[in-house]
């Protein structure tokens, strides 16, 4: 690690139209529209490129049902042929990046189908693509050049996710897999939650990859948060007081209802997680003995949540109609 090392930033933008509509609603304490958001992000992107000439950038968009690469400085032709009118008042590389990003986002959002129900945002798709991109452009080339050059020439990669959508418990396993891949690739993943409640999985992502998680309270100060917290490369963060998250929730999503649970029943064969005792594992078709079902049924904690106060949960009476605990993202 030396301080002269360039850094690569993969930016993942959550572009869910429904969430951005909610975010810009004037009833919010501090409404933030997609346009304002993008102008903040473009300024941030420019300052990333400006802070070191070797710095590289890739921008991915997570749209409902699909994920796209919006811009990459490694793949020049990915931008397509963009005609930029000469503007004497702007620095051309910045102008180029800005217009490519703005134009591509406009095309992607304009190309969305108007369905009654918006499919969930493909955040995981964007995340996995970003990891593949980093692996292909930086890790593989680092391996190949390791014999000839020093590895410092390869930029240090990190990922920043700007999220507005709530947790998708269906994508629990892929998110976990992405975490472990990021750990192997030594990629730091930062999360900035721009709108909506905290997401448990993204908290785990940033905690396990050594990144920071920031839940934006004053959303008109987005740019300041971005620059103060996420502009510095990971090795610099050690000397800067970058805000870290205080509490990390290590809860998982159950496989049966995709609820987020804090006490769960786990199949010993395949580690499938269930929110209530089941007679047969839905994943591996293992039958569980009746005796342990009864025992676990009686050992179930109260459904009220929070501290039950009773240290020994065995004395808790069995709940007649077991209902899965609603997903609460606190």
């Amino acid at each position: 690690m030396n301080a002269d090392r360039a850094s690569h930033l993969s930016l993942i933008l959550d572009l869910s139209p429904a969430q951005w509509h909610l975010s810009s609603a004037p009833s919010n304490p501090s409404p933030l529209s997609l346009e304002t958001f993008l102008s903040h992000v473009l300024t941030f992107v420019n300052s990333h490129i400006a802070s070191k000439p070797e710095n590289t950038l890739a921008v991915f968009g997570a749209l409902p049902g699909k994920s796209v690469l919006i811009h990459s400085s490694e793949i020049a032709d990915a931008d397509g042929s963009v005609d930029i009118p000469g503007d004497p008042n702007s620095y051309r590389p910045f102008k180029l990046v800005d217009s490519v990003i703005a134009q591509n986002i406009e095309t992607e959002i304009g190309g969305l189908y108007l369905a009654d129900e918006e499919p969930p945002v493909a955040l995981v798709g964007a995340l996995t693509k970003a990891l593949c991109h980093i692996n292909r452009t930086y890790q593989t080339s680092a391996e190949r050049s390791s014999t000839t050059q020093n590895s410092d020439a390869v930029p240090e990669p990190r990922i920043l996710i700007l999220s507005v959508s709530p947790d998708l418990s269906a994508s629990y396993i892929p998110i976990m897999n992405s975490i472990f891949s990021a750990q192997k690739l030594k990629v730091t993943i930062d999360i900035c939650k721009v709108f909506g409640p905290d997401t448990v999985f993204l908290q785990q992502v940033s905690h396990l990859t050594g990144g920071s998680y920031i839940h934006l309270e004053q959303r008109d100060a987005l740019l300041q948060f971005l620059i103060m917290s996420f502009l510095s490369p990971p090795f610099m963060r050690e000397v800067l007081a970058v805000p870290k998250q205080d509490k990390v929730d290590f809860r998982a999503a159950c496989f049966c209802h995709k609820n987020i649970v804090d006490i769960a029943f786990v199949c010993s064969v395949c580690l499938s997680i269930f929110c209530s005792p089941v007679p047969v594992c839905t994943t591996c078709r293992t039958k569980f003995p009746i005796k342990s079902l009864q025992r676990l049924q009686s050992a179930r904690p109260f459904q009220t949540g929070g501290p039950s106060g009773i240290a020994n949960g065995v004395s808790t009476p069995a709940n007649g109609s077991p209902k899965p605990r609603p997903a609460t993202a606190s």
């Binding site: 509490k247 929730d249 290590f250 006490i263 010993s268």
Partner: peptide
């Protein structure tokens, strides 16, 4: 064994991690 290879449901808890400032 009565069950198939001793498979069983296990009760597990997922904890909350406290920060160093707690």
């Amino acid at each position: 064994r009565s069950s198939t290879s001793g498979a069983d449901l296990m009760l597990m808890g997922f904890p909350t991690r406290l920060p160093a400032s707690a």
